[in-house]
Design a protein around this nucleic acid. Structure first.
Lengths: 174, 174
DNA sequence: GTCTATACCCGGATAGAC
DNA sequence: GTCTATCCGGGTATAGAC
């Protein structure tokens, strides 16, 4: 269970860069996360970033890892029941919408990910579903759908989303 | 119930352009849908497109309208039960992944949409849910989540997604 | 309705000096 | 590890002739 966290895996300078990248992303969205803007924020010039990361994708990978770790931890802390776990998922995603998007809107670069992180991130859900992978996947799809449709402005402004969440949580508990 | 379809609303030339835009999008994805590439495909130069549409967003709007109409029709044709309707939703989305993405990954430009199209598109689902909006929203979130997580390569390659769909459909029927 | 020419802005990334 | 200078490519969009 050695779970080398982001903190151990990166040099201090790289961690600083990732931290600022995260802040930039969370504050202004994916479109604002450019190598130039990030460099500005760090008080350096864009080309200097390439001494630390080979390309932008490598930087984004660190953000994805970070987000997977945090989601796993948030779910772990709420794994007493499916409704509690869904509440934690919803709250994490809505608290970090741009990071959540970066994480979920592209296919996982599985080969580049630290060993076992994908499993760790979803283990609490699977456990709460009694090991039933079909229920776990369906529940995940529901939760992700609720979050992302809301973030994408797809529900009417008047919609009572908490009621829909409750309906979904109940549906998967039977 | 006058439902001016795309076919009546646009001049023939505009329809040709929209048709080619759709083909380009469906064949090569959103990133490939550029004004230059679209013009190439039509055998004209990019600036000429601006004689027909004020900007790219206006063109994309037509694609979104088109997709909403088609989804509504697909659901209408399968509205005998929730599982049947979900099957239709899944099949439409997977048959037109890039169009489906264009439609769902941004907030709906509701003011620019033809009157009532959003309602028409979702009416079959609401009807099948017996008018219960919470169930309809939860079921939609589930279906969208399943589709988009699959398109984003989020499920393991070995996952039995049909089983997860069935689990979800059952959950919302009780 | 189409063309040519072009402006404009933005992005990621590299070379080579210090 | 940072800099300056620069390349290269891509996109949307406009002006004005035909």
């Amino acid at each position: 269970m050695s779970e080398r966290s982001t903190t151990d895996r990166l040099t201090p300078r790289k961690r600083e860069i990732v931290t600022e990248a995260r802040a930039l992303l969370e504050e202004h969205g994916a479109a604002a996360l450019t190598m130039r803007a990030l460099a500005d924020r760090l008080g350096i010039k864009a080309p200097s970033l390439y001494k630390h990361f080979p390309d932008k994708a490598a930087l984004e990978l660190e953000l994805i890892i970070l987000s997977l770790e945090e989601i796993g931890a948030a779910l772990e802390a709420a794994a007493e029941s499916l409704p509690a776990l869904m509440k934690a998922y919803r709250e994490y995603a809505l608290a970090h919408p741009h990071l959540y998007r970066l994480n979920t809107e592209r296919s996982l670069p599985r080969e580049a990910l630290p060993e076992g992180i994908e499993e760790r991130s979803s283990a609490p859900l699977l456990r709460v579903c009694g090991g039933d992978v079909d229920t776990a996947r369906a529940a995940w799809a529901f939760a992700h759908g609720m979050v992302i449709l809301q973030l994408n402005g797809r529900f009417p402004g008047t919609a009572d989303l908490s009621a829909a969440w409750e309906t979904g949580a109940d549906a998967f508990e039977g």
